[in-house]
Design a protein around this nucleic acid. Structure first.
Length: 448
RNA sequence: CGGGGCGUGGCGCAGUCUGGUUAGCGCGACGGUUUUGGGAACCGUAGGUCGUUGGUUCGAAUCCAAUCGCCCCGACCA
């Protein structure tokens, strides 16, 4: 993408409304624009990041055997009257009336609708286990939206729902989700800690939240520092194996880690050595629930089991805040000059900068590198603007692409171009003829 | 919802207390010239119903009232 043809409204100054780093940087990098309190437009650069996150989330869910679908944003109130939540949910639910005076609501979550779909079409234990998910916009009319996309009223969430014949199977689904979530966060460049959680208005009795440590987080958390040493890595996990999934869950939930709501100071002091007790702030980026037959009983979602009896199906639900993750990743990866995107979610992997717009040699080299890098499968943002080098460097640093390739007369005189890795700040030079391949190797792309 | 604050060119702000003639400043934008390795310099240009409505007054960005919007602190939440 050539910058002169892109839509990238960068801001030099910090908008006065933005308080925390991620919000300020998203505004300055031209990723979002506020439409109303807690409601944002996603500009091209921001959308690219959000879509990359969504893709990773979907890939990991699919890998775990969960099936993508899509439910609407608007739901009939009748479903929620059936579950009792139309009156229970309160002011956070945005209620809408259509032209025929029918009551609708902008979905804050989808347990009712998915249960309705399930009960209509699934009747036998032979069709289980079943886990369906979608990535869809939600609306929760927060009392006080804040921190940009971190606490928006409208937000993009992946929410999934499992249906199982009994509690054992449903707990396996719960475990499977924890593993798939840990994998997801790791791919996103985040260290997310599962913490025992309250179940809140969704209900149920078995739940974990996933929290990313950040000083600007809204949650206060207490944990055993030993949990920070856990790594899932790329271990191939058999999602069909109850034992393997349970083992991973056991490993990750044994060290003490709780939010303020479930924190028990006595247990904390008893079980965790003094030197490893950490209290900190964190951002919640996901939550999983097992709630048994809470919805299936009231809504009549039953299956016939192997013994021929009709039993209410066991369910759980699981959510990952996709739009919030954009902010959370920035909170975890930035410095005082801008964003430092992890490679996996970077809007472009490489920024190519022509430092001397009117220099034929620089321009020719840039054009060639631009073609070569794209040919190797790299996503390149090419700064072909006629700006001063200082402004170009500052823009690239702000946007935070993992790699910058600078082409200027000084190094090009020696036949070289300059690489800068955003995360480390380390610069190096390389002959321009082989620069594209060299960078592809550094990034780890296979030969074409 | 309780408490606090703010609405003035695209962005950041001054001016409001103490009403007074063409509403300023920095950044940005546009045109030109000179520049070009970490947010360049100079010259010029465009852009504002001072959130909205009503009131007080000879006169309102400024005083009064209402209203809309946004932000911060608290209780609630992916």
């Amino acid at each position: 993408m050539r910058m002169t043809r892109y839509f990238l409204p960068l801001l030099k100054e910090v908008p006065s409304d933005a308080q925390i780093a991620s919000h300020q940087l998203m505004m300055r990098a031209g990723m979002i624009r506020q439409a109303a309190a807690g409601i944002y437009s996603w500009l091209p650069l921001g959308l690219r990041v959000m879509q990359k996150i969504e893709r990773i989330v979907v890939e990991e869910q699919t890998r775990a055997g969960h099936l993508p679908m899509l439910m609407p944003t608007l739901q009939p109130a009748t479903l929620w009257e059936e579950s009792g939540r139309y009156s229970d949910y309160g002011e956070e639910m945005l209620r809408i009336t259509d032209r025929h005076d029918r009551k609708l609501l902008y979905g804050p979550t989808n347990e009712e609708m998915i249960t309705d779909i399930f009960r209509e079409h699934v009747h036998s234990y032979r069709d289980l286990p079943l886990t369906l998910f979608h990535v869809q916009w939600k609306f929760r009319d927060e009392i006080r939206p804040r921190y940009g996309v971190m606490r928006g009223r409208e937000f993009l969430m992946k929410d999934g729902y499992n249906f199982d014949v009994d509690q054992d199977e449903a707990i396996h689904a719960y475990n499977r989700h924890m593993v798939s979530y840990l994998r997801t966060y790791e791919r996103l460049g985040l260290q997310a800690i599962p913490m025992r959680a309250d179940t809140g208005p969704i209900g149920g009795n078995h739940s974990h939240e996933f929290l990313v440590l950040a000083s600007t987080g809204e949650s206060r958390v207490h944990y055993d520092a030993a949990i920070l040493d856990l790594k899932l890595k790329d271990a191939a996990i058999d999602y069909d194996s109850h034992d393997r999934c349970a083992a991973v869950v056991a490993e990750w939930t044994t060290p003490y880690a709780r939010t303020e709501e479930t924190h028990d100071a006595t247990v904390f002091a008893d079980r965790v050595p003094a030197g490893r007790r950490v209290e900190s702030r964190a951002i919640e980026v996901g939550q999983i629930f097992y709630f048994g037959t809470k919805y299936s009983e009231v809504m009549g979602a039953t299956v016939t089991n192997a013994a021929g009896q009709s039993v209410p199906v066991h369910m759980g639900s699981h959510g990952i805040g996709v739009s919030r993750l954009v902010g959370a990743i920035i909170e975890a990866h930035h410095d005082d000059r801008g964003i430092r995107w992890p490679l996996s979610v970077a809007p472009f992997q490489v920024g190519l900068v022509n430092l001397a717009h009117n220099d034929t040699g620089c321009r020719t080299t840039c054009e060639q590198l631009y073609r070569e890098l794209a040919g190797l499968g790299l996503e390149v943002l090419y700064d072909d603007r006629d700006e001063s080098p200082g402004a170009q460097f500052a823009s690239m640093t702000l946007i935070g692409l993992p790699w910058m390739v600078a082409v200027g007369p000084r190094s090009l005189a020696g036949g070289e171009v300059e690489f800068t890795e955003r995360a480390s700040g380390i610069r190096s030079s390389h002959p321009h003829e082989t620069a594209a391949r060299h960078l592809a190797d550094r990034i780890g792309l296979p030969p074409v």
